[in-house]
Amino acid sequence: MVRLNYLDNLKVALTFLVIFHHAGQAYGDGGEWGYTPSNPAEVMPWIWHFFSTNAAFFMGLYFFISGYFIPGSYDRQGFGTFVRKKILRLGVPLLLMGGLLTSATGKVEIAHMWFVESLLIFSFFYAVVRKRCPAISKDCDSRPTLIGLFIAALVMGIGSYFIRQESPQDHWISLSIWTFEPAHYLQYVMMFVLGILAYRFDWLDKMTKTTGVVALLIGGALAIGNYVRQDGEWNDFVWQWFGIYESLMCVFISFGLLWLFREKVNMGNKALSWLSAQSYGAYIVHLPLMICIQNMFDGVWMGAFGKFMFVGVVSTVLSFAFTWLLRLLPGVKRVL
């Protein structure tokens, strides 16, 4: 297989973004978090813009990239090997980290591992479907177009709009061991499926410069529109239709970034390969490491923004380094 360096590099960038997103949650209204600063001055009221824009696309893009690699993996391995490897790669970290977080909190808790759990469910579902149905033929001239992206975003947005009438954003549901946020779940399912189709129809190679550039510009404009909204008519409009607005951000930012990384960040070297190899493990281990760092430096005044950046940088470095050390242990590379 040809290594797609730009997808590896994009996954690394998304991992950095996830870690910094979580680093900011203690210093703004980012939902329930396992640490609260003892100094009430360590707060950044503006950071909700950062949270809102990130949440619009970054986990959806994670699911897209994961979905992209699923069909080829199944084609090479077959049902049995595919399922066993997904249990090892996804199920084992889920059980270990879930057990650690549950022991630490005294209640059943998987926190950020909801992504791994959902990806495991999606992978099993794909395997069951493929066992009964043949693979989609690649004999199709389909390619990403701006109209196609808009239609996908509109379907996602209308569905999300109605889901949010019953289950607003940041409302999480736990059904036995399945934890999910209904407001974003349609986005995740659709992006995973789009990733599968992108592999089958070779969409990433077929995406034209015009489609990529315009998608990036539209996504960037929507992100700016989300950052600048405060109180007023624009904020009221975006908030009323946020399920649709966010879905447009998701699709256009995601495909814009896929094109940008394909054209401008499609390189490989030892440093980038090292980062890519550790990125999955860094996602898994970063949260407990981060909370330890936040508690250790709780009494050190750096200003709210300074503390946010400090925690983000240190957590990122330690997460990647700790993953590298773990992967030196026999057998760990098969999991992480």
Score class of each variant (00 low, 15 high):
2 V>M: 14
3 R>M: 13
14 L>V: 05
14 L>W: 08
16 F>I: 04
18 V>F: 07
20 F>C: 08
24 G>V: 14
27 Y>W: 15
34 G>M: 11
40 P>R: 02
40 P>I: 04
44 M>A: 13
45 P>E: 02
46 W>Y: 02
61 L>Q: 10
63 F>H: 04
64 F>S: 00
69 F>D: 13
73 S>V: 08
75 D>K: 08
82 F>P: 06
83 V>A: 04
86 K>I: 04
87 I>E: 00
90 L>I: 03
92 V>S: 13
95 L>V: 12
100 L>T: 12
102 T>N: 14
105 T>C: 05
109 E>T: 15
113 M>L: 12
116 V>I: 13
118 S>Q: 09
121 I>A: 02
124 F>Y: 12
127 A>H: 09
131 K>Y: 07
144 P>R: 09
145 T>Y: 03
150 F>P: 01
152 A>Q: 05
152 A>R: 07
153 A>C: 11
156 M>A: 12
158 I>H: 00
159 G>E: 06
160 S>C: 07
163 I>G: 01
166 E>Q: 14
167 S>D: 09
168 P>E: 00
170 D>I: 15
172 W>R: 11
174 S>E: 03
175 L>F: 15
177 I>K: 01
180 F>N: 10
181 E>C: 00
185 Y>P: 05
192 F>W: 08
196 I>G: 04
199 Y>M: 02
201 F>T: 06
203 W>E: 08
204 L>Q: 09
206 K>L: 12
207 M>W: 02
207 M>E: 08
209 K>F: 07
211 T>C: 14
213 V>P: 09
220 G>E: 05
224 I>D: 03
226 N>E: 10
230 Q>R: 08
233 E>Y: 10
237 F>S: 05
240 Q>N: 11
243 G>L: 00
244 I>G: 01
246 E>L: 01
246 E>P: 01
248 L>N: 04
250 C>P: 01
252 F>Q: 00
253 I>T: 11
259 W>V: 01
260 L>W: 14
265 V>K: 03
265 V>H: 01
271 A>L: 13
275 L>E: 05
276 S>D: 10
277 A>Y: 07
280 Y>E: 03
282 A>D: 08
283 Y>M: 09
283 Y>E: 12
305 F>W: 03
308 F>R: 11
310 F>P: 10
310 F>T: 04
311 V>R: 02
325 L>S: 03
325 L>V: 04
326 L>C: 11
326 L>P: 07
332 V>Y: 10
333 K>F: 02
